[in-house]
Design a protein around this nucleic acid. Structure first.
Length: 590
RNA sequence: GGCCCCGUAGCUCAGUGGAUUAGAGCAGCCGCCUUCUAAGCGGCAGGUCGCAGGUUCGAGCCCUGCCGGGGUCGCCA
């Protein structure tokens, strides 16, 4: 039950009535107005700007937004959810809901439980691609942010009714996995007793490759050492990639993240049984006249050392808003990463995903335009690709930056952070910031048990709701607190201003879900939960000063049950919201 | 130099279908524990929403330019 949608519906029919009466341009569609909680609570529960938005489209002699608003108000006054309607300011319509409307929200929350807030399912297929790290080492904290963001976004979209596929693109085709293979080979020699000394510049120095070296030594004995590189490289490469992917999956599992599809970049060309999909994608663009042989102007900044003016295979991405056309073939004749990525997205389109979301690190921002251009070209403008960039994570401890050096191979891994502070803290903090804003992650702060730590603050609110039930069980051992019984209790008794405030915030949950899902912004859920938790804490403390406000009233069994209904409703939303973020809702914090 | 992101209270940040008096936390000051977890709550103070124009009846939000910070800049991924 979304009261905002209900009111919007009523406004739409008022709008249509005015059109029928010829007082409003009949060609208009009522899709530009807003129905939202007013900034100032004294303005009521819901405000709309409909009269102001359409004021200029009124029939002659009927032109003032306020006058228009008055017309709508008379029609809205009859609506069963509406208690009071006012015209304010330049033509705002402020609506106060019937108590029964708010009670209805609570009842719906109790009845629908974990489904409360869900819009009607639309079953649109959506592909969310996230993580997509090079399989060359353990995940670091920056990867973790993209991983958590993607996972929460996928859950949010699923909740909002989409059919979501969670996808991981394995970058197992470029030069970097060859470097990985050479690094692993070195560890193999080491494992067989050779002294390898310092890891040469350009190879991965991390200790995590020692295990692979040892495994290779066990599996192949001396055989690899006797081969020329050309022969051992593919063997070692595949073994190393498999081991790295196992490592990465493990890191993800530690964060409760799972993917439906792991898509190998190499499979686009190396899969012997399939045709070369990259070639096919380029051909598809060729058929649209979007491929040509040409030269590009040199880049504006510092010229690369090995720059040479060269004719190459280019995609006309500029026809779709990119700044320059983009190369698809390297000078050695192999495909560029971009070419593979075009084929990959062509594959997603072929699998029926007209809506795609890619989660990338902010350092790939320069790549966005060309990828969108490619999808527009491949789908003839029908495919929709949204690319969310996650900014850097700066690890802190008590306000001091944690030193990290990737070059030496000694960097703080995602796994280390998860092991230190726990899944809930990592996930919540990663989501308690807009994705395109940099994030300071303080290892000390996120495990603090204080209001300064939002993870704790929200979980504590949930724990308090459960505490109220434990308390109630002491006082009224036989009180029926099943959701159905609570939904059937007398909700008119939930009428104190502080209680109504909680109901109003609850009523906003369905709208919040809708907007967060549309905007692809799971952080809104985290902030909403913080607000709801705040209202709960506030009301809870009020019960300390004014015992008659407590949820559990020893002298009034019926009142207690009604108030427990409120508590249960809040708890239900907290639980649902936390679940969307992948964060636990503990019954107690002790 | 081009492109992208960011610039809101002393600090860290919310605020996208433009709108009625711009919000929260921290830090500062003043308060609240014999009773549902004070691991919490209330109050005070604090802002030319980077600057300048523009569109609009109305701009933190849209457009242009500038300033400041970050990212990125044929074949890396």
């Amino acid at each position: 039950m979304n009261v905002f949608d209900e009111i919007a519906l009523a406004l739409t029919s008022a709008f249509a009535a005015l059109q029928q009466e010829g007082r409003l341009d009949g060609a208009l569609t009522p899709d530009r107005f807003s129905v939202e909680p007013p900034r100032d609570a004294s303005h009521g529960d819901i405000a709309t700007n409909i009269a102001m938005v359409y004021a200029r489209d009124l029939a002659p002699g009927f032109t003032s937004p306020r006058q228009f608003a008055t017309e709508i108000v008379t029609r809205l006054g009859q609506h069963p959810l509406v208690a009071k309607v006012d015209v304010a300011g330049p033509g705002f319509i402020n609506i106060r809901l019937q108590h029964a409307a708010l009670a209805g929200v609570l009842r719906a929350a109790l009845q629908q439980k974990s489904r409360f807030g869900r819009p009607p399912a639309h079953h649109q297929p959506v592909n969310v691609e996230y993580v997509s790290a090079n399989p060359t080492g353990p995940m670091h904290v920056g990867h973790g942010r993209g991983a958590v963001f993607g996972d929460a976004l996928a859950a949010l979209l699923e909740f909002a009714g989409a059919r979501v596929t969670r996808e991981f693109y394995i970058n197992d085709a470029g030069a970097q996995v060859d470097v990985l293979a050479r690094s692993a080979f070195l560890r193999y020699r080491e494992a067989r007793g050779e002294t390898i000394g310092a890891i040469p510049e350009g190879l991965y120095p991390g200790d995590y490759l020692k295990a692979i070296g040892a495994q290779l030594a066990r599996d192949h004995g001396d055989a690899l050492a006797a081969m020329p590189e050309k022969q051992w490289l593919p063997l070692v490469r595949q073994a190393a990639i498999d081991a790295m992917m196992a490592l990465i999956r493990d890191d993800l599992a530690a964060l409760n993240i799972r993917h439906d599809v792991f898509f190998s970049e190499a499979s686009l060309t190396r899969n012997a049984s399939a045709a070369d999909q990259v070639r096919a994608a380029i051909d598809a663009l060729q058929a649209r006249g979007l491929i040509y042989q040409g030269t590009l102007p040199p880049p504006k900044g510092a010229l690369p050392d090995d720059w040479e003016d060269r004719e190459q295979t280019l995609f006309r991405s500029t026809q779709f808003g990119d700044d320059v056309d983009r190369a698809l073939m390297k000078s050695d004749g192999s495909y560029t990463y971009f070419a593979s990525d075009i084929a990959y997205h062509a594959d997603k389109l072929k699998r029926g995903f007209s809506t795609m979301i890619d989660i990338w690190g902010a350092d790939h921002g320069g790549y966005v335009k060309r990828m969108k251009a490619a999808v527009a070209a491949l789908s003839d403008g029908k495919g929709e690709l949204d690319i969310k960039l996650c900014q850097l994570v700066k690890l802190m401890r008590d306000g001091e930056p944690v030193k990290m050096s990737k070059r030496s191979g000694e960097f703080v891994t995602l796994r280390e952070v998860v092991d230190e502070v726990g899944v809930d803290a990592v996930r919540f903090m990663m989501l308690f910031r807009k994705n395109d804003a940099p994030l300071d992650f303080d290892l000390a702060k996120v495990i603090e048990k204080s209001r300064e730590n939002p993870v704790f603050y929200v979980q504590y609110a949930f724990a308090r709701t459960q505490s109220a039930f434990r308390q109630a069980a002491q006082v009224f051992p036989d009180l029926n607190v099943a959701p159905e019984a609570l939904a059937a209790s007398d909700l008119d008794l939930v009428n104190h201003p502080a209680e109504l405030e909680l109901l109003r915030i609850m009523a906003q949950f369905p709208r919040l879900i809708d907007q967060a899902a549309r905007a692809h912004e799971p952080h809104r859920v985290a902030f909403y939960l913080h607000d709801l938790a705040s209202a709960l804490h506030s009301h809870w403390t009020a019960g300390k000063d004014m015992p008659h406000l407590r949820f559990v009233n020893e002298e009034n069994r019926q009142l207690t049950q009604s108030r427990l209904a409120l508590v249960a409703g809040v708890a239900e939303i907290l639980r649902t919201g936390l679940a969307l973020l992948g964060v636990g809702a503990p019954d107690e914090m002790r």
